[in-house]
Simulated assay, not measured.
Amino acid sequence: MYRSKILAGLLALGTAVAAVGCGGEPEGSPGTIKVGLLASLSGTYQAIGTDMRDGFQLYLRTHGGKLGGHPIELVVADEGDGPPTAVPAATKLVKQDRVSVVTGIVGGGSAAAVYPVLTEAKVPFIGANARPVFKDVSRVWHTSYLSQETGASVAQYVRDHVEGSVYAIGPDYQGGHDQLKGFTEAFTKAGGTLANADGKTRFTPFPTTTNFTPYFAQIKASGAKAVYTFYAGTAAIDFVKQYSQSEIKDLPLYAAGFLTEGGVLNAQGDSARGIFSVLNYSPDLDNAENRSFVAAWKENHDGPPTTYAMASYDAAAVLDKAIGAAGDNPTPESINRAIGQLGQIDSPRGAWQFSKTTHSPVQKWYLRQVRQDGRALSNMVVTDLATVGK
């Protein structure tokens, strides 16, 4: 009797071991896939990075923690303020954590610096915010935009609605250069005139500039009839508050949407009223995907979702489709190949798809204005702008 009980126990144990297999998963079940998310969780752009992390996690939460039927282990790393922290964090993700794909990255400078690390490891990158132009995009995809597209999409509108010259100003780093270049090139091509001395954008030291008053004096002296700018994070708060109290406060202010996006608008308060901005998303867009997204976001957040959260949410949606199409045992290579075969993506911003040449979205852009929305100020859509991407 005693030997029989031992034998029965051993048989049961053997059956259990066979069921889970060597990988710890039930036989026939899809294995866990590691995804690395690199975003600014400290520094100037902490609020942006936090929204990106939360947007990706929201998709996972509303899809049972799986993408493409596979359980996902999300490895989160801090990008910080740029390359000095972003590069070692990305290196750890691919060499130590051995993730199959990397997503996120707030800054264009960080993306450029991390690019060689991911290329060498042959790990696909699905960016969810700023992106400079890369020569080889075979493993690079973006759910946000190319940095120059923001300003380019609103340039004709500004040319048509401002009677006179426009002053361009922004931060002196890769993302600022790209954002302002997109506007100034398209604006002058459309027949617009820059008020800046020598027709060149005024760049302010980054991230050290906190007092913008001297620059406002230069804008006043230039005779500009409007201002176009790009700032984000804490710099956006400083710029807007000081602008509203300056001698140029009555000049129309146009900006890349990041100037008043998310938590910075709450911090700016009434100083931001009336600012025009251009972006690929607004929480008041009326479509089924956006209504579901906004409702799910508000379950755990006080304010509406941002473009940063939306783009990261879409990065997870892209991976959901691609991993599901990448076979029973997805690899970085098969996931990357599957992304290239995706068609239209239904998104809170409206439907979009990857460009075949740049691997960034072909998408519509929107002009917004900070207006009263009930008891709060919000970015509200004024009109559709151009569809950009090729």
Rank of each mutant, 00 (worst) to 15 (best):
T387V: 13
A232L: 08
Y173R: 04
V35P: 06
D178I: 04
P252Y: 09
A235W: 00
D373Q: 13
G389R: 07
T209R: 05
F239G: 03
S244T: 07
A376R: 15
F276C: 00
R139M: 09
K356N: 11
M310A: 01
D54L: 03
G107F: 15
V278P: 07
K135F: 11
A186K: 11
D178H: 13
D314H: 12
N280Q: 14
G23L: 09
G269I: 07
V114F: 04
I335D: 06
Q369F: 00
L13C: 14
F354C: 00
T201S: 07
D81F: 06
T143W: 13
T15P: 00
S40N: 07
K66R: 15
A255M: 10
Y215G: 03
A221E: 15
V381R: 11
A155L: 05
K200N: 02
Q353S: 12
A288G: 07
Q363P: 01
D54C: 02
S292I: 05
D373F: 08
A19G: 10
S153A: 13
V94D: 04
Y313F: 15
V106P: 00
A316H: 05
T307Q: 11
A232M: 12
G14L: 15
V264L: 02
Y281W: 07
L194R: 05
H301Y: 04
Q242D: 06
A217L: 11
P30T: 14
V162H: 14
G191D: 09
F230M: 01
D346K: 15
A226Y: 10
T307W: 02
S144A: 14
D136R: 14
E289L: 03
A111E: 02
G324K: 00
A256F: 12
N196M: 06
T193P: 01
Q372W: 01
G269P: 06
K5W: 15
L385D: 11
S153W: 11
T188C: 05
R273C: 04
I105E: 10
A12V: 12
T387N: 05
D54M: 01
N329P: 00
K298L: 10
G28W: 04
K95D: 14
S147Y: 00
A152S: 12
R131T: 15
E185V: 13
V140C: 04
T383V: 03
D384Q: 03
Y45D: 12
N280H: 15
P304M: 07
V133F: 10
D97P: 02
T188D: 06
L10H: 03
G199F: 03
S40G: 11
G262S: 04
S312V: 09
L146K: 11
S138P: 01
D238C: 03
S244A: 15
H301S: 08
A111H: 04
Q245W: 07
E289Q: 14
V154H: 01
H63A: 09
E185C: 11
N379Y: 09
I323D: 02
L118Y: 13
D284R: 00
H359A: 09
G107Y: 13
I169N: 05
A221Y: 03
Q46C: 03
D270G: 08
T306W: 00
A295R: 15
T62M: 10
G191E: 09
T331Q: 06
D270K: 13
R375W: 03
G374E: 06
Q353L: 03
E299L: 09
